[in-house]
Simulated assay, not measured.
Amino acid sequence: MARPAKIEDSALLERLSDVFREVGYEAASLAVLSEASGLKKASLYHRFPGGKEQMAHEVMARAEAWLSEHILAPLKSGGAPEVRIRAMIRSVDAFYSGGRQACLLNMLSSPRADQGPFANLIKNAFEAWIEALSAVLTDAGFDEDTARFRAERAIALLQGSLVVSRGMGTTRPFQNCLANLERELLTSHRTGGAA
Rank of each mutant, 00 (worst) to 15 (best):
58 E>W: 08
54 Q>Y: 09
162 L>I: 10
110 S>V: 00
32 V>L: 14
109 S>I: 01
191 T>F: 12
150 R>G: 14
8 E>M: 12
123 K>L: 01
43 S>H: 02
141 G>F: 13
97 S>K: 11
135 A>H: 12
143 D>H: 09
53 E>R: 07
143 D>V: 07
31 A>M: 06
22 E>M: 05
12 L>G: 14
25 Y>T: 00
70 H>M: 11
66 W>F: 07
86 R>P: 08
174 F>D: 06
159 Q>S: 14
105 L>W: 00
52 K>H: 04
182 E>Y: 06
7 I>W: 05
110 S>P: 02
123 K>H: 07
193 G>D: 02
79 G>N: 03
186 L>A: 04
194 A>F: 08
167 G>E: 15
33 L>Q: 10
46 H>P: 02
138 T>V: 15
148 R>W: 06
1 M>F: 02
93 D>G: 09
13 L>A: 07
123 K>P: 01
155 I>W: 01
130 I>P: 07
64 E>C: 12
33 L>N: 03
181 L>E: 13
138 T>L: 13
173 P>T: 08
29 S>G: 14
107 M>K: 13
129 W>H: 08
59 V>T: 07
184 E>T: 08
8 E>I: 09
84 R>L: 08
23 V>S: 06
65 A>Q: 11
12 L>M: 13
131 E>H: 06
184 E>S: 09
14 E>L: 14
37 S>P: 15
128 A>C: 04
132 A>M: 09
63 A>E: 10
3 R>K: 14
105 L>Y: 00
79 G>Q: 03
101 Q>K: 15
107 M>G: 03
17 S>R: 14
128 A>Y: 00
183 R>N: 05
12 L>Y: 05
108 L>P: 04
45 Y>N: 08
152 E>H: 10
51 G>Y: 04
101 Q>N: 15
162 L>D: 05
61 A>V: 05
180 N>Y: 07
48 F>V: 04
153 R>L: 12
170 T>S: 15
78 G>Y: 11
